[in-house]
């Protein structure tokens, strides 16, 4: 099977990342056990996504339970797959939320649930039961107002990590800050990274969430791009899980004939991942 390499490459990446951030954990005074935890979480999640045949590589081992739990979803059915993912998210997030929101436990849980149903609404109180949080989470999770609120969360989040909850847009707003720390600004040129991530991490319905973080993490130029993108996604509904993330060497066009030379691609097709080193495309517009 041509995606058998996926598990190998992915576990290689996991190992590489874990090895290379060890020093960062040290410098931050974070215990090594947390690093181990990260590795475990990461591996579990990617396995549960069932995008690649981990079994074939003898990498399954102790994770049979998780895999079995996900059998009903069926990896080839992408709709199920998405649903399952968000279910997992909810499950995964519930525990810590309950703990964190000890002061307002029932509120927190209730809000978790209402928010899934009312996608357009702000999400108050969810994570920490912290009042300050309300002011922040509302704009970030509220699609239409998110662009206005770009700068507010950045400032507040900088020093108070508690306010950081599981929304990825926060991660990505941090990214915006990181620019000053030597990260080239042009990183922002990759517009939709945050969007997809958040769509998967947030339990909200995917098409709505996809648009929100895009507004948040990309101001100015990119928001325009994301905008069109999202409209498209919304207009055409399903099937956008089939995606290729790659680099291009060359894209040429003669009349309506397009040729592209692509490389270093990760494809997600019908719930499975495939990798390619080189890809050639010929299309007609």
């Amino acid at each position: 099977m041509s995606n058998s390499i996926v598990a190998t490459v992915y576990s290689g990446v996991i190992r590489d990342v874990i090895d290379n951030v060890r020093k960062d954990f040290d410098e931050n005074g974070v215990d090594v056990s947390v690093l181990g935890e990260l590795e475990k979480l990461w591996e579990q999640k990617i396995r549960n996504a069932k995008v690649a045949p981990w079994e074939a590589n003898g990498l399954t081992g102790e994770d049979h339970n998780q895999n079995n739990q996900n059998m009903n979803g069926g990896s080839s059915n992408s709709a199920h797959y998405m649903q399952q993912q968000s279910l997992q998210q909810i499950q995964a997030q519930n525990d810590p939320n309950l703990k964190a929101a000890a002061s307002l436990p029932s509120l927190a849980v209730n809000n978790m649930h209402t928010n899934h149903n009312n996608e357009g609404r702000p999400q108050p109180y969810i994570k920490n039961g912290n009042i300050q949080l309300t002011a922040q989470s509302s704009p970030t999770s509220f699609p239409t107002s998110s662009d206005i609120s770009n700068s507010t969360p950045i400032n507040n989040q900088a020093d108070d990590q508690k306010i950081y909850h599981q929304h990825h847009q926060n991660l990505h707003t941090m990214m915006g800050q990181q620019d000053e720390f030597g990260n080239p600004l042009s990183e922002k040129l990759i517009p939709r990274g945050g969007g997809e991530n958040s769509a998967n991490s947030s339990p909200l319905p995917e098409f709505t969430t996809r648009s929100e973080p895009s507004f948040v993490d990309n101001d100015d130029i990119n928001s325009d791009l994301d905008d069109t993108d999202d409209e498209e996604t919304n207009a055409e509904g399903e099937e956008t899980q089939n995606i290729i993330l790659c680099l291009y060497d060359k894209v040429t066009r003669t009349k309506n004939k397009w040729k592209c030379q692509l490389k270093d691609g990760i494809m997600s097709v019908n719930g499975r991942d495939y990798l390619f080193q080189k890809g050639n495309g010929d299309f007609e517009f």
């Binding site: 990446v13 931050n28 974070v30 990260l38 990617i46 939709r192 991530n197």
Partner: peptide, 26 residues
Amino acid sequence: RRSSIGVALTDSLDELIKNARISPQL
């Protein structure tokens, strides 16, 4: 980062941040 392995990582990191195990900077 928006690939499945990237999403899995981001989700994991989010969990850790949420539980105050690591900082967003890390």
